[in-house]
Design a binder for these strands. Structure first.
Length: 589
RNA sequence: GGCCUCGUAGUUCAACGGAUAGAAUAGAAGUUUCCUAAACUUUAGAUCCAGGUUCGAUUCCUGGCGAGGCUACCA
């Protein structure tokens, strides 16, 4: 409808005033005012010099005349409120019924291929709450981009090498007694994480001992024997020492096994995996290339740098003096490798926390300086940290929220609340367990995704398990109730040709439904699942208010047919919205 | 010190530069012979401060104040 208005208005300004106007400020009318769509005329006063109310009335007259669906208008200050006929909305509902793909853009032969990177963990400890935000954001953005007609490839870069994993390895050798996930009855990632903690404890103890024997703290931090061991191990790793490599493979395999279980439960997946142990070599080649092009330079000690001071940034290290690679080196290699693997790729999204904003600024700039024209297609999906009411999460201080434990807790709460409400009688135990999972994950995912990615989240475990108000389970519950209505209504309901007028609440719901395609498009453009989440909640509120006031399963076939169709349409859009967030929409709960 | 992000009801979140700043929670008061009360209805409560830009600012600009992050030969 907006498009029709814009087209007509544009032609009007052309013929009447001989002016090219293509941008019009059209928005849904606020509920306090009468009307469906509102044209803000203030911006047009610069083009046509008139009083706002006069111009608004003039345009209103024209639109009523020119467009059959425009029924009437009213003017409040510089706002032209346009009323659309009920027939238009009824027609829209008919189309909705016949279009299972409503709001989504189908893929075509010319669809762009986009790569979305997310998760990208270190392999020395289990995933925590921060990773959950990362995973949910990345997976949801991938869904949204897919719904917008793109070929989306999901991937991650795994930090599988480095001092962090060596720390776990050293501790395992010292204290592990050949413990395995099976013998310890622990998930693989939890086991490796346990030794990372043990390393740190031992490390701190050794520092304390050294300090008490008169060594400076800085010196002690460097000299602690166990750290030296880890460094030696890293050196051996780089020299391809067979034993070290075998242990490394072993422990990483445990971690991957544990991660896979967590990902499965979270409902995220990856089309491919990149490993730093594979990409850092290409990174080094890239640095050589930059050196030969004169973009990078070597300092006296042999370390390689890039000078970005002309761009308002710093000098950045690219290779250490001993020739080994750093984070940036590897990311250069990874980016290039991906474009080699996907030559037709039109863009990459990096889902990484905002503490690395600077890093990605530098990375993209270096790639641009190296002459890769695809550097302009790279996007850092930056998100804020997850805080707890008790303060910041710190792994070393044990204040992290473990991802698996959190999902356990959400599941248990869903179970408890469902049992108290007692609505699941007659289900098998298996069905119930599956539903507890669906509801628990719905609560967790919605709680995190409804917040604007760039903002910090305060994660209150108590509030997150709340199932009333603006929450995932509330939306899921509405969907389940709609399915209940559809079951009771039967399937014999298609035609509502003779209906000519709509209830006010029905119209409100239809208006909200009509905004779905634009919402998906905006979410894709802004990489923001929060837009979808807030839309879904808005729709549910509209619907609940409607169903409270207007009975759906009435005698009159025409009316019932219309209301059931509306109900089904709402169900469809709720299900799609939740789907974009990676949340399941149960038929019963 | 320099750079980046964020400051909205008691609390957690909304608001392409648009109308009287929306919800949810917590508080107060109601609604179940009727499609699932995990619901609905009513009520009270907020833009950090000072300037500027303009028809119009929570939004853009400048300066404060406050919170966080980055500023590693860690990843």
């Amino acid at each position: 409808m907006e498009a029709v208005l814009i087209k007509n208005l544009s032609e009007y300004f052309k013929t009447q005033y001989d002016k090219e106007v293509s941008a019009f400020e059209i928005q849904p009318t606020k509920s306090q005012f009468e009307g469906d769509l509102t044209l803000v005329v203030f911006p047009l006063l610069k083009i046509v010099s008139k009083k706002p109310t006069d111009l608004a009335a003039e345009l209103g007259d024209f639109l009523v005349d020119a467009i059959p669906e425009v029924e009437a208008y009213n003017v409040v200050q510089g706002f032209l409120n346009i009323q659309i006929t009920d027939a238009y909305f009824i027609d829209f509902l008919t189309q909705l019924q016949q279009n299972p793909n409503f709001g989504f853009i189908p893929k075509t032969a010319t669809s762009d291929t986009l790569l979305v990177e997310y998760s990208s963990p270190n392999t020395n400890k289990p995933l925590h709450l921060g990773h959950i935000r990362n995973n949910l954001l990345g997976a949801s953005v991938a869904n949204i981009l897919t719904a917008s007609g793109n070929n989306v490839h999901t991937t991650q870069i795994i930090n599988d090498r480095g001092i962090h994993i060596c720390k776990s390895m050293v501790a395992w050798q010292k204290f592990g007694n050949a413990e395995t996930p099976t013998s310890a009855k622990l998930k693989g990632d939890a086991l490796v994480g346990k030794y990372y903690v043990l390393f740190d404890q031992q490390y701190k103890k050794e520092i304390a001992d050294l300090v008490s024997s008169g060594v400076s703290e800085k010196q002690a931090k460097n000299d602690a024997p166990i750290l030296q061991e880890a460094k030696e191990m890293l050196l051996k790793w780089e020299q391809n020492d067979a034993d070290v490599r075998a242990l490394w493979e072993q422990m990483n395999a445990w971690v991957y096994d544990g991660f896979a279980k967590t990902y499965l439960r979270l409902g995220v997946h990856f089309d491919s995996y990149y490993y730093e142990s594979d990409t850092y070599v290409l990174g080094k080649e890239t640095v050589d290339e930059g050196l030969s092009k004169g973009i990078f330079y070597t300092k006296d000690d042999g370390s390689v740098w890039v000078d970005l001071t002309d761009d308002g940034l710093d000098e950045k290290l690219l290779l250490r003096s001993d020739g080994t690679s750093v984070y940036m080196t590897q990311d250069l290699g990874t980016a290039r490798l991906r474009y080699t693997n996907h030559p037709d790729m039109k863009g990459m999204v990096y889902t990484v926390g905002n503490e690395q904003d600077y890093h990605f600024k530098v990375l993209f700039l270096i790639l641009k300086k190296l002459g890769y024209d695809w550097a302009s297609q790279l996007h850092h999906l930056s998100y804020g940290m997850v805080d707890l009411p008790s303060g910041k999460m710190k792994s070393r201080e044990g204040t992290v929220v473990d991802a698996d434990a959190l999902m356990d807790e959400m599941h248990a709460t869903a179970k408890q609340i469902s049992q108290e409400l007692g609505k699941l009688d007659g289900m098998t135990d298996e069905e119930k367990e599956s539903l507890y999972h669906t509801i628990g994950m719905g609560a967790l995912k919605y709680y995190i995704l409804k917040v604007d990615p760039k903002k910090r989240i305060l994660f209150d475990p108590q509030a997150s398990v709340d199932f009333t108000g603006n929450t995932g389970p509330f939306i899921q519950y509405t969907h389940a109730r709609i399915q209940s209505i559809l079951r009771k209504a039967g399937v014999d309901t298609i035609a509502f040709d003779d209906i000519v007028s709509l209830h006010e609440k029905e119209k409100a719901v239809l208006k909200t439904l009509g905004q779905f395609p634009a919402t998906v498009a905006a979410a894709a453009k802004q990489f923001s699942p929060a837009l979808i989440a807030n839309y879904a909640y808005d729709l549910v509120k509209q619907y609940n208010s409607y169903y409270q006031e207007v009975p759906i399963l009435v005698e009159d076939v025409q009316t019932k047919s219309l209301r059931v169709a509306l109900c089904a349409a709402v169900g469809q859009v709720i299900q799609k919205s939740l789907g974009l967030l990676g949340i399941e929409a149960p038929n019963r709960m």
